Structures are given as C-alpha cells and as structure tokens.
Simulated scan of single mutants.
Amino acid sequence: MVKLRTRSLSIPASAFFVVATIATDGSDDRRVSLLDELVESDFVKISRSPDFDHFRSIEGLGEANSIPLDYRNFAASFASLRLKTCTIYLQRTFPRILQIQYSTTGAIIGLLMDDAASLTLNGVEGRAPALLLVKGSARCEIVEQQANLVALVNFDSVDDRGWPGELDRAQLITTEPAKFDALRVTLRDVLMLASHSPDTLVQPGVIENIEESILQAADLAMAAATPSSEAKRLSLSHYLALVRKFDEFVAVNAGKTLYSADVARQLGVSVRTLHNAVVAIRGMSMHRYMRLRRLWSVRQQLLRSASPQSIKAVALVNGFWHMGEFTALYRELFGETPQQTLSAARKQTGEPS
C-alpha cells in the first residue's frame, strides 16, 4: 500500500518548502508510483505512449532507436521538468535494445531509481549505486532486459566542478550508496514539488536554489565515485566495434537473407567471435538477435500497408520460409498476427482490408 509522507528538501535557507514523497510498505511499488503520482503543471510535462508504434524517445537527449524485447504489455512514459540550467527526465522504460547518441553542452547524469533495476551499457552491467555519466557526445548501446524507472539530468554546463569522466565518452561510475540515495531523493522531491506545488517555483530565487541542491547532491556523488573496471571496458571495446559493424552490414543488406558464416566472413572474424560479441553487447545469442531484427523488418513493411497477398512474400524476403513458425514467432513478439497488423494499418490509411 502506498502512503504519503512529507519531508523537507535540503536547499539553501533562502527557500524553505515541504514536498510530498512516496513511501512503500516493503513492496516494489515505487518504480510505478513515483511517475504515476506526477501530474502535469506549468513546469512538469508528461508523455505516455499507448503502444510501441506510437512511442517517441525523450527529446533533448539525442538521437535514439529502440527495439523492444517484449512487445506485449507495453507501457512507457516519461515526465520532464525544465529548470533554468538543467532538465530532469523521469522515464518508465520497457524491455529493449536502445541505441542512442547522447549529446549535451555540459553533462548528462543517469541513475536507476530503484535497487531492482538493471541494464547494460556497452556490455558493462549497471546497477545502483552506479551512475551513467556523459560529457559532450557519446554513442551508447544499452540493453534493458526488464522495465526500469530511470532518471536523467541534462546539465547545460558543468564547468569547474571537477567531475570525473572524459569528453565525448559515456561511462558507468560507482559511487557510495548513501550519496547515490541522496541524489535519488533530491530528484524525487524536486519532481513532486514542481508537479504538485508549481506556484512555489515562481517565487524569487527558488529555482536557483533547487538547481544548487541538485548540483550539490551530484557533486557529493561524483566525489565518491570511481570509474568501472578499465580492463573490462577495454576488453569489450573490440566487441562493441564489431557489433556496430554487424548492425551496419545488416542495415545495408536489409531484405536479404543473411547467413551467419557469410556475415562473419564479410566482417573478417569467426562465427564464434561474432556470436560472443553479440552476446556481450546485446545480451542475447546472434541467432535470436538476427531473428528479432528480421521480425521488426517484417512489421515495418506491413505497417506501410503492403497488399494482403504480400505477407508471405515479405516473410520470405526477410528469411522466414516456414509460415507456421513465422506466424507463431510474430504473434509471440507482437501479440497479434501479421494479418491483424496489416488490417490495422490499412484501416488507418482508409484502404480496404
């Protein structure tokens, strides 16, 4: 059962206020409850996606592409709060492969908002109390095997704050649990305040003091942080480059039947090496990853309203020769048959189904 309690947000004495925060009675409702407790205001904007076909990535963080690992029971939403020198995002994600090019003039800090959450960044596992830190522009390969609640803060500038990390690189850094939790609580409190008491933020100096509280919490977390194993990062760099080449090869040869031996030969590696790279970076076998991409290719073509008799042709072009197996795999991933996808797409365009 979710209860509300009040707590004071630790900010300079020039702005005192009380905000509501979420407490749980030993259950893991916090991941859901925090975002569900937010409401739109003059400061907080909320976006909810009814399904993946209408999903849009968080704006303002960079170019992104998501491939869901489970299309059924899709639920994704995010809230954003723009202050004067930073923007806070709170996102409920979904099981997926996320390819994103983060871009910022200052720095992006990301953190998982509950201890059960986890992901991998460029093959390195991230759990609390690990922080994502991006300075400048960095391309990331992220795998989320489960839905997570994630907070990201995009700072316009972080000059002279002494934070670790290199320019144009993303990394996971581990901090002390107490410092990590303090940053979590600060972000929760700020989001709740801006959502439920937006009038407070229009008072002179309050936003500046809120931003200072966020920076102070981030400074303390960064001061206690240590980079993740450099040896682990270097051992994965070859695999990361190989998987990116593999994705480029698949994209260039879209619509063609690809065989693992031929792909590996084109990339100049063994099938075993390519398989190991995909497992390390994507968290699944090469066979499953290629099949996932082919199923999504079929869906995208069907959503463009190909003619009904072309379902088999589209499946064949994408390497599915066993129609019964193809239909079962498609239904398992998307929760509907290829014909249902096609019919829904044609209704939206006004074409007869």
Rank of each mutant, 00 (worst) to 15 (best):
G26Q: 03
F155L: 02
A130I: 00
T85K: 05
V269D: 00
Y259A: 12
S197P: 05
P198F: 03
A13G: 11
Q309S: 09
L133W: 01
Q101F: 06
V202N: 08
L329G: 14
L119W: 06
I100K: 10
D70L: 10
L119N: 11
E37S: 12
A79G: 14
M192D: 07
A182M: 05
L187Q: 08
R31C: 13
K347L: 02
A15Q: 09
M290I: 09
A64H: 04
R188H: 07
R294G: 12
L121G: 08
L112N: 11
E125I: 01
I210M: 15
R294W: 04
D160K: 09
L9E: 09
I22S: 15
G126F: 02
C140I: 08
K312Q: 13
R7Y: 10
L303E: 09
E332F: 04
S310I: 06
V185Y: 00
L316F: 04
L83F: 14
F52Y: 05
C86P: 03
I281L: 13
E141V: 06
S27I: 03
Q301P: 02
T341Q: 06
L61H: 03
S285A: 03
R72A: 08
G319S: 03
V44N: 06
F52H: 06
Q301M: 06
V252C: 11
L302V: 10
T175F: 01
R304N: 13
N253C: 09
S80C: 15
A20P: 14
D25S: 15
A254M: 05
I97M: 10
F320S: 02
A251F: 02
E144A: 08
R139E: 12
Q266L: 04
G165V: 01
D51R: 05
F17E: 09
V124T: 14
S235Q: 14
Y102A: 00
D28P: 13
V19M: 06
A218D: 03
F320M: 04
R72C: 04
R72K: 15
A151K: 00
F94E: 07
N253S: 12
M1V: 07
L90W: 00
L112F: 15
S213D: 02
A116S: 14
M323R: 07
P12H: 01
R82N: 05
L267S: 12
M113T: 00
E325Q: 08
V279E: 11
V278A: 14
G26A: 12
F16D: 13
Y102D: 00
R82H: 03
E248V: 15
L98M: 08
E248I: 12
L35T: 12
D199W: 08
Y289H: 15
L191A: 10
E40A: 12
L220M: 14
M113W: 00
K245E: 07
L9D: 05
